[in-house]
């Protein structure tokens, strides 16, 4: 048994509109909105890093959870856009939070890393106590690489999210269960080499995501005798509004149950789910009895879902 004590997020201040990108990509701003549901995204400044954004999200998370750095027993950091090969951002973030000495582990899992981190923390909290799960991405540094891809560059933005997972029932929302899956058969369909542009077979990614996400959610809910209709809110990786709408349709629930902020932030890869959760947690937030379903899909492919219940 593990519990969620709270979420935090950080978004850089610079807003990049579709109009600004359309001029560079020789396309219409309206086309970007039509194919993605994205109107604008945030880009980090030159002095902002994966680690610095992760620290900012973590600090907000701890403040909202009423916890201090001394309460943390482990740090898990998801990022697919770290500025260097190694070390990853986890140890630096732990140092900045003044928790040197505890294990700080990197999870380089694009898009689904925030979900995988939460699911792993739910199990590891029995050993390590409070675990801070951070997902931070500076995707602008990747999608700005030339040649600019019209089908990729407008989709992504920067930001960070954080979640504090506690042992036992020490939190307002208990984690009921999770399902995680990986399949390397299509690993080449979404990949990022060192210093190379991001390569994405969009048809394959959308085809698999539109089937695997609802399948994982149904698998998880079925294990616990629940249906999608019993879920108060779906907090899903914010990849594409059209994808979220299709997942809702596959589960036969109203798309309004899927919290969405993709219009404002674009796809912030593994950070997006926790950024969405931080916003929803603040307003309207969980009420006793609410069932909350998290879900994500990303490069690898890796995908899964996590079920939580407000107590």
């Amino acid at each position: 048994m593990a519990a969620i004590r709270g979420f935090g997020a950080y978004l850089p201040s610079r807003v990049v509109t579709n109009e600004e990108l359309a001029a560079q990509l020789y396309c219409e701003a309206g086309w970007i909105l039509d194919v993605s549901g994205i109107e604008e995204r945030r880009y980090a400044g030159p002095d902002e890093t994966v680690a610095s954004m992760g620290v900012a999200a973590a600090e907000q998370c701890l403040e909202r959870a009423g916890a201090g750095a001394a309460d943390i027993g482990m740090v898990l950091v998801s990022s697919s856009s770290n500025e260097r090969r190694f070390p990853g951002p986890a140890s630096g973030i732990a140092h900045a939070l003044s928790v040197d000495g505890i294990p700080a582990i990197d999870l380089p899992v694009a898009s689904a890393g925030g979900l995988f981190g939460m699911a792993l923390a739910a199990s590891l909290s029995a050993i390590y106590g409070n675990i801070l799960v951070i997902a931070s991405e500076k995707m602008s540094a990747i999608v700005s690489r030339h040649p600019l891809e019209r089908g990729v560059a407008p989709l992504f933005g920067d930001g960070a999210g954080a979640c504090l997972i506690a042992r036992g029932e020490d939190g307002p929302v208990e984690i009921v269960d999770s399902v995680l899956h990986s399949d390397g058969a299509f690993a080449e369909d979404l990949r990022l080499g060192w210093d190379a542009p991001l390569e994405m077979n969009g048809r394959s990614v959308i085809l698999h995501a539109s089937r695997k996400i609802p399948s994982a959610i149904a698998e998880l809910l079925g294990k616990h005798g629940q249906s999608a209709l019993s879920i108060q809110v779906f907090l899903m990786h914010q990849a594409n509004q059209n994808l979220m709408d299709r997942v809702a349709r596959a589960l036969e629930v109203d798309a309004g149950r899927f919290y969405s902020n993709i219009r404002r932030y674009g796809n912030t890869s593994s950070a997006s789910m926790q950024i969405a959760a931080a916003e929803w947690w603040k307003d309207p937030g969980p009420r006793p009895g609410d069932l909350i379903c998290f879900a994500a899909f990303g490069a690898g492919f890796h995908w899964g879902a996590l079920l939580a219940r407000a107590v």
């Binding site: 969009g202 048809r203 990614v205 959308i206 085809l207 539109s210 089937r211 059209n242 994808l243 299709r246």
Partner: peptide, 9 residues
């Protein structure tokens, strides 16, 4: 397009 494909499948 990418979204009509899963619908067709």
């Amino acid at each position: 397009d990418s979204f009509a494909l899963p619908d067709m499948v």
